[in-house]
Simulated scan of single mutants.
Amino acid sequence: MVGLALAVLAATLFAGPAMAAEEKVLHVYNWSEYVPQSVLDRFTKETGIKVVYTTYESNEAMYAKIKLLKGVGYDVVVPSTYFISMMRDDGLLSGIDKSKLKNFKNLSPKVLNQPFDPGNEYSVPYMWGSAGLMVNRKVVDPASITSWNDLNRPEFAGKVILSDDQRDSMGVALKALGYSINSTNEAEIKAAYEWLKKLLPAVRVFDVTASKQAFISEEVAAGLIWNGDAYIAAGENKNLVYVYPKEGVPLWVDSLAIPVGAKHKDNAHKFIDFLLRPDVAKECVEEYNYSTPNVAAQKILSPELAKSRITSPSDADLKNAEFTNSVGNALEIYEKYWEMLKTGS
């Protein structure tokens, strides 16, 4: 009996490391059509780790599910800008171990160390971009469009599109008035509401998912659009031009993060580091046409993307631009005025 017990103990000790190793699987919760299938297949081929890929259509939906599950169930999520700080403050994110990310050095300082995650302790930039102003040259000379206030021009009456994301559209209004898109001052937020209310008769639709098609079909002639969608739209309709208003544009960054309850954190770090490889980052950008925070990848982009001001903006284009950050308790003020705008009160 003693011999049997010792044999069992020895077997357990020798099996320990194997049992402790993570299973070859990774659960990714991400925006739809945001990592090419070819990239996922390459990762699996190189590492043997199977990727289970689940999608969401909004930060709010992702945030609500991760909060409900208390950070359990997924190994990698991709929140935008200030959702990182919200999830961090709620204790939903695990810290990033940069010692496991040999490709972290490829990232641009311009995108790192933002107020929503100082030091990038909880997030690693994946894609970034702007929400700029697109116009149709059949309606107006694009050279004459220099300001968000130009959306009020009579040529655009009934043909303006705005985002149904309150921070994007309220941010544009704040910029038009010379304020920060991250203002917490109620008087400024109210002024932004009044600016949007004045513009409302010219607005055909509030949308964030179909703006690209609305511009291509010329259902709308001016308005807010994400730069990746703008690049595709301009490629399909040569009359479309993307403009950086002088007041500045809202900037966004989608970052890779690890939920606190992730069961495969080593695999998650391997996946994040894989996406930071220049060749992989290049493939992702050329598939979806957003801007890459990866300096090494930027150097090997196709000439079309590298030269495009939509996907590769200059410092002058981004003058006065701001990343959207958390506004804390002032979010309730935004929600109040946004509801008033949408209900016509």
Rank of each mutant, 00 (worst) to 15 (best):
M1F: 12
L4M: 11
A7Q: 14
V8D: 13
G16Y: 14
P17S: 02
P17Y: 05
P17V: 04
E22P: 08
V28E: 08
V28S: 07
V35L: 14
V35I: 15
V35K: 01
K45A: 15
E46S: 14
I49T: 15
V51Y: 09
V52C: 03
V52S: 10
Y53N: 04
Y53G: 04
T54H: 15
T55A: 05
S58L: 03
M62K: 02
Y63V: 08
A64N: 08
A64F: 05
I66W: 09
K67I: 12
L68E: 12
D75T: 08
V76S: 05
T81C: 12
S85C: 04
R88Q: 15
R88E: 15
L93P: 09
K100N: 14
L101V: 10
F104L: 09
K105W: 06
N106L: 02
S108L: 01
P109M: 03
V111T: 07
N113Q: 04
N113V: 03
F116R: 05
G119E: 00
S123Y: 14
V124P: 11
V124M: 08
G129H: 10
S130D: 15
A131C: 15
L133W: 05
L133K: 00
M134N: 10
R137W: 04
K138Y: 09
V139A: 12
V140W: 03
V140F: 02
D141Q: 02
P142Y: 00
I145S: 04
I145F: 04
T146S: 09
S147C: 09
N149P: 12
N149T: 10
V160M: 00
I161F: 02
S163G: 07
D165M: 12
D165K: 02
A173C: 11
A173V: 12
A176F: 07
L177N: 11
T184E: 13
E186V: 10
E186Q: 14
Y193G: 06
W195K: 00
W195N: 00
F206M: 08
V208K: 01
S211W: 06
K212S: 10
Q213G: 03
Q213Y: 04
A214F: 10
F215K: 01
F215S: 08
S217C: 03
S217R: 13
E219F: 13
G223R: 00
L224M: 09
L224V: 10
N227E: 15
G228P: 07
D229A: 06
D229G: 14
A230W: 07
A234D: 06
A234P: 06
L240G: 14
V241L: 00
Y242A: 00
V243M: 00
Y244S: 00
P245A: 00
V249W: 00
S255V: 12
A257I: 05
I258G: 01
K263A: 12
D266F: 07
I272L: 10
F274Y: 13
R277Q: 15
P278N: 06
V280T: 13
V285Q: 01
V285K: 00
Y288H: 12
N289E: 03
S291I: 11
S291D: 14
T292G: 02
A297Q: 01
A297T: 04
I300H: 13
L301Q: 01
L301H: 02
S302E: 15
I310H: 04
P313M: 01
S314I: 01
S314M: 01
D315C: 03
K319L: 01
T324Q: 11
S326I: 05
G328V: 09
N329K: 14
A330W: 08
E332R: 11
W338H: 03
M340P: 02
L341I: 06
K342S: 05
T343R: 03
T343G: 07
G344F: 13
